[in-house]
Amino acid sequence: MSDDACAQTLAFAESPVQLLNTLEWAHTTGPGGFTVVILPPHDPTSRGQLRRMAQLARDSGCRVLWREARGGALTPSRALAALAGPLRRARRLVIGDPFSHYLQVLLSMARDCDIVVVDDGTATMEFTAQLARGERLVRWHRPQARGPRAMLFAPVARRAVRRLTPAAGRSVEVFTVMPVQAMEGITVSANSFSWTRSRFGPPRLTGGADLVGTSLVETGVLHEDGYTAAVAALVREHGITRYFAHRKESGEKLRRLSREARVEIVRPDLPLELVARRGPIGSKILSFPSTVVHTLPHVLSDTDVEVVVCDVAESLFTERVTERASGFLATVTSTARGAHGLAPPRSAAPQ
């Protein structure tokens, strides 16, 4: 495949899930091959998963470039300079996290080309709602940024929002498994995880129960003590034997969960959707509000796995959590139950 052919579509991935959903988009609606630029974060778990996902992308016919874009003072500017040419040539950009400041800079540098946004988790729901309201893009669990740095970045953020807004000669597509707010001019395409199901599985079921971990403690949304107690209660009530850690969970917290909740900690080497599809996996999977309560019902649609979504008790939230943030988590839960018929656990976690 020539470089010119690959340059027609340029995809950026900062996380393993973004790259997985980019491959799902390509399998469903995209070209046979294109260039994927991986912009890895610092944490080793994410980097390891991205390296494994990169090989899957190569096996699927994509050209993959690994670009270190974070680090010292010169690293970001060098990476941006190297990407300037491909950005100017690209006729379509595929991105996974429109909230990322780095990707907003890349969008501001790009030509007036078509845009595809693929899922990077539940944040896609908030992205389409904010875009429809014409707001600056801010993650659901963070307050509006203020101060000199925010003021300096504001022109870049506004330009990125314009790039993400449909206009004459420029299409915008959202490829998602999430229930999103419709917006005039944006094409919403459903992600059914057909690539994942055709590539892997169906998995062998263990007959037991697994729990999906969350990084809501690390992001300051939940108290660690309360979360640990809630996990321990679920382990006792449902006979959970394995806890699949989120890639951003700290080692210290996971060791505490292993000790106090008496559960085996599993650090997945790929996104959980692929781990579940490859198996073995529990016959019941429990999760707090997160992306997987929307993705796993599709990934495991041809199996007898039961996916259960757990409510988050108000007492678990930290003082910094806004009404908007707690409402967003409640929406993740209610929409998953509405779309997939997911039930709450038969016993409630401690209040």
Rank of each mutant, 00 (worst) to 15 (best):
A209P: 10
M178T: 01
A150S: 03
V138T: 07
D112Y: 11
V177G: 13
E184A: 12
S100A: 07
T176A: 01
T122C: 07
I115L: 11
E184L: 10
S194C: 13
G85T: 09
V177S: 12
Q130I: 03
I186S: 11
R92K: 15
E126S: 10
A190M: 08
G96W: 12
A160Q: 12
L131T: 10
L106W: 10
L93G: 04
G208Y: 00
R162I: 03
V116M: 06
T219R: 10
V217T: 11
R142G: 02
L74N: 15
G185I: 02
H141P: 13
F127P: 07
R199S: 08
S171V: 05
S77G: 12
L222M: 01
F200N: 02
I115H: 07
F200L: 11
T196L: 07
R163L: 02
T187Y: 08
A82C: 03
L106P: 03
R146I: 04
A160F: 13
P166D: 01
M109W: 14
P155R: 05
T128P: 07
F175P: 11
R159T: 10
R142P: 04
D120V: 01
T206D: 14
R136T: 09
R149I: 08
H101L: 08
S192D: 14
W195Y: 09
R88D: 04
G121L: 03
M178G: 02
A145P: 09
R149V: 13
C113F: 13
H141L: 05
S215L: 14
L211N: 08
A182F: 01
L164K: 02
L87G: 06
V172P: 14
V118W: 13
R204M: 15
R199Q: 08
R158V: 03
G96Q: 03
T75L: 15
R199P: 06
R92C: 12
V156F: 12
M109T: 09
R149P: 03
A132I: 06
S198A: 15
R89T: 04
R139K: 09
F175Q: 07
S77N: 06
S171A: 07
